[in-house]
Amino acid sequence: MADYRLQIVTHQRTVFDKDVTSVTMPGEEGYFGVMANHAPIIAVLKEGNVDIRIGKKTQRVWISGGFFEMESNRGTLLTDRLTGIDIPEDEEDQP
């Protein structure tokens, strides 16, 4: 199955930048999934779980809300806070 590039960017840093098969996320009017070759979309996301599928593996992260954009097979998820991804703990997290 075709993959596409997904970037997850927070206030602090880019936390995720990998090829993914599909992503399911919490839109304001309910969960929806995006696979490769999706039409250009911009969606407002609310608080909830995001399931990132890479091949047959699924990774679940929680986001505090944000935005999703997809355009010519490049997905970008902007969020304020998220948990669940192994973020390299930064010693200089917040002053």
């Binding site: 206030h11 304001e28 009017e29 250009p40 979309i41 911009i42 969606a43 407002v44 935005f67």
Partner: peptide, 27 residues
């Protein structure tokens, strides 16, 4: 120009995106 699908509505997207942009800019 790209013909985006705006979820849930174009107004809502602007409403959410613009303040975030302005906040980040001050930050």
């Amino acid at each position: 120009a790209i013909d985006y699908i705006l979820e849930p509505t174009p107004e809502r997207v602007f409403e959410a995106l613009l303040p975030r942009f302005l906040q980040t800019k001050v930050f």
